[in-house]
């Protein structure tokens, strides 16, 4: 009897060990592949990032010079996209969570919002091209791209805001309303301040997607290497520039330098976001 029990225990601990090994191995693959990719890009790219690269405009299609106008273009497009998407997304989340509790209309809208999140970006690009660029006559411009990207990041923003609205206790709403506050005052002065870090998280996720987007931007912003002056000018984002450099084989150095800078930018945004959201949380 005890022999059997011992055997069973032994078998159990072997099984345990095997599973532990497999899980650990799979986790290691995730981590290692990430390190290898990021490391490879950084090793190849960092050494070519210098002041000249950052401050000069591209020459000869990007073969020489820097990527100053491209960096500015990227920031420009992202800002325009977020400026459009944030109020719309936050308002939609407030509507879903505070006003239209439940109901068929809301669940239908939510269903489509979720579908929106899964649509390939090239489809957004095609729509943006057909609608903003051609139909509305905005041409290839920061505005067309910003509008297209704002639709892409909307689901993320709505979801993140809604999740954080849900964590605000009902008692805060009751407390505010019982003092004679209107629903609107309650939302603006009590509920939204509680959601700062949640909304910010959504924003950062959105910015991450906007900064890295290639296909949709290429179709709506175009590929001009000139520094954009207004939102009606065409420009080029870093991701598009990277695609051009790589696919045309213009310059290996500049390609990796651009890629490395893109990674650093995303890292920087995420770190800043973490920092700010921790600050807001306290």
């Amino acid at each position: 009897m005890t022999e059997k029990l011992k055997q069973r225990n032994q078998y159990k601990s072997i099984k345990n060990g095997v599973f532990y090994g497999i899980i650990g191995f799979l986790a290691a693959i995730t981590l290692i592949s990430l390190i290898v990719i990021v490391g490879y890009i950084l090793i190849n790219g960092l050494s070519h990032i210098n002041w000249e690269f950052l401050s000069q405009e591209p020459r000869r299609m990007g073969k020489e010079g820097g990527i100053f106008s491209v960096i500015i273009g990227t920031i420009y497009i992202t800002i325009v996209a977020m400026v459009i998407a944030t109020p719309v997304g936050v308002a939609a989340a407030i509507y879903f969570n505070e006003y239209a509790k439940g109901g068929k209309v809301v669940s239908t809208i939510r269903f489509f919002t979720e579908i929106l999140a899964g649509i390939p970006s090239i489809i957004f690009g095609l729509f943006g091209f057909a609608f903003f660029v051609v139909f509305l006559g905005m041409g290839w411009s920061v505005l067309s791209g910003g509008l297209t990207l704002s639709m892409m990041v909307l689901p993320t923003l709505v979801r993140a805001t809604e999740e954080s609205l849900k964590t605000v206790p009902m008692t805060y709403r009751e407390g505010s309303l019982s003092l004679g506050a209107s629903k609107w005052q309650t939302i603006i002065k009590v509920i939204l301040p509680c959601c700062k870090s949640g909304i910010l998280t959504g924003l950062i996720l959105g910015i991450g997607r906007a900064v890295g987007e290639t296909a949709a931007v290429m179709l709506t912003v175009g590929g001009s290497l000139k520094l954009p002056n207004t939102i009606f000018d065409s420009t080029r984002s870093m991701a598009v520039h990277l695609y051009m450099l790589a696919s045309e084989g213009l310059s290996r150095e500049k390609t990796y330098a651009t890629a490395a800078l893109l990674i650093l930018m995303v890292l920087l945004i995420n770190t800043a976001a973490n920092f700010i959201s921790r600050r807001l949380g306290n």
Partner: peptide, 20 residues
């Protein structure tokens, strides 16, 4: 309704100060 709630205040079961 707002005038009513201004004149008729309420204190709840669990203390619910705002996070301010």
């Amino acid at each position: 309704l707002i005038a009513l709630r201004k004149k008729v205040g309420m204190v709840f079961q669990k203390p619910n100060p705002f996070p301010k």
